[in-house]
Design a protein around this nucleic acid. Structure first.
Lengths: 260, 260
DNA sequence: GCTGCATTTCGAGAAAAGCAATAAGGTTAC
DNA sequence: GTAACCTTATTGCTTTTCTCGAAATGCAGC
């Protein structure tokens, strides 16, 4: 029966104050409003802008530091870091020849040689989750060959990749072996007579599960960029279904389309 | 100086327990593990599975109810709701003729007529944010015509669209008028001699800003699916740059590509 | 050295998270 | 109908986190 602290009639932001502050500042950085090397407003300015105390501002900035978006040295302004948000172009994986086209507004993300390498975690036969089963047109309870990989950037986990193959395709091939595949699976599939012809990507923004959170060592509570890719042969039959879970602050994906 | 409650040496999930539980259950639902109409495990089962108390489980389920993912009737099991996650196919906007191709694994999202309509919020000239300025190749401090729209699904805000046009293209056209454009902007641009030829979409998962959070009336603390689309003419010059912010639980986007 | 600024620390009040146990009332199956 | 199971709501309590105010510390640039 006590009076409400402030007049907030509508459903407001349930997040804590420092999370909201971090969200707004993060947007300013990601949108390029604050470009790499630029100084953030001083804590005093931020205090008045968000009507918060010193400690709360510091906590918000700490979140951005954990995400490696900014750096703060005592005495100097907090500055925006060179943030390496990789721009992935899925179309290039099928037709690498066309990868030369670049656009002036793209940050030089994939340009400098990325220090990324892939770690093969596991290869086994398993009953896939429902979305994969649908994609591969498997019967209920049917199995598939799963290849789990972890992509590391600068030795930090960055992406979780789970590729599923129908047994009819994988049996008796290196796809079943717990070993890296030279030239990638696309090359192998082509050699096996299952030439990838066409990909369908479903992209969504998700809240990370506990498993994903720990596997990707996500800083703070960032979202995750989920892609479900189905690779089809020329006759339309599914060859491969891959679930890719990328850390939201490290990746973005680029697609091109048009009536060509 | 008290003993730590449990041995957790590594950096663990900083989120609260009911948020983590909700995240895992959400994943089971979104991946189709728990299909619409299916029953969730009973609260007793969930209590043992997550080693949490009744109240915590209830709080986690409340989050999923707020997202309209599940319904709970007293006495019966909590069941998964028909969740209408719209699958958007951006390519269809340019070549609607090809929209007939459908895939068996797609849920019938865009199939039944969506009860979506568009609300024109604002039309004005403004200095665009840095990412838009880059996309349109505008000089620093240059202005653009902004058309802000809000997409409503079932009278609930679902997507925030901000389209920017270079003054050279928008001046003296209905693009500057605070009025809906019959047939959409693509048709108008074609009539004006700026035929859209090619789109480039950059898709990312973001934490919503306070503004986005309130505009979209996001339940809980869900991420947002951000798309920056640049529409190019045949000669490569940018015609339009659009920032689309979709509520993460309502949308996913689908892209197709391949060496055609 | 001085000033501005970021950083750290302390205390204290308020709010939220989490547990335990209990009660109430609906649904389902027998 | 009855019984078992289930969701939902309530209460009390402890611990942790959030937030503020204020003061102290340390670094960078002039």
């Amino acid at each position: 029966m006590t009076a409400v602290p402030k007049a907030e009639p509508e459903a407001h932001d349930r997040r804590s104050l420092h999370e909201r502050i971090a969200a707004d500042l993060r947007h300013d950085i990601m949108s390029g409003e604050l470009s790499p090397g630029a100084n953030l407003p001083s804590t005093a300015q931020l205090r008045t802008r968000f009507d918060a105390s010193n400690a709360t501002i510091q906590k918000a900035l700490q979140l951005l530091k954990d995400e490696r978006l900014v750096v703060g040295r005592a005495g100097a302004a907090v500055t925006v870091r060179e943030h390496h948000q990789r721009t992935i172009r899925p179309a290039d994986s099928l037709a690498p020849a066309a990868a030369d086209r670049s656009y002036p507004w793209l940050t030089e993300a994939a340009k400098h040689g990325t220090d990324a390498h892939i770690m093969l975690l596991d290869v086994r036969e398993t009953v896939p989750p429902a979305d994969i089963r649908n994609a591969l047109a498997l019967p209920a309870g049917g199995v598939a060959v799963l290849r789990s990989q972890l992509v590391l950037i600068d030795d930090e986990p960055a992406e979780l990749v789970r590729s599923y193959y129908p047994p009819a395709i994988a049996d008796g091939t290196p796809l079943r072996d717990h070993r890296r595949i030279k030239g990638g699976t696309a090359t192998l599939l082509r050699q096996l007579g299952h030439t990838p012809h066409h990909c369908v990507d479903q992209v969504s923004a998700r809240v990370p599960t506990q498993e994903q959170f720990e596997a990707l060592r996500l800083p703070g509570s960032l979202p995750v960029l989920c892609t479900l890719r189905v690779v089809l042969a020329a006759d339309g039959r599914p060859i491969e279904a891959t679930s890719m879970v990328k850390a939201g602050h490290l990746y973005e994906v680029l697609y091109e389309f048009g009536p060509e």
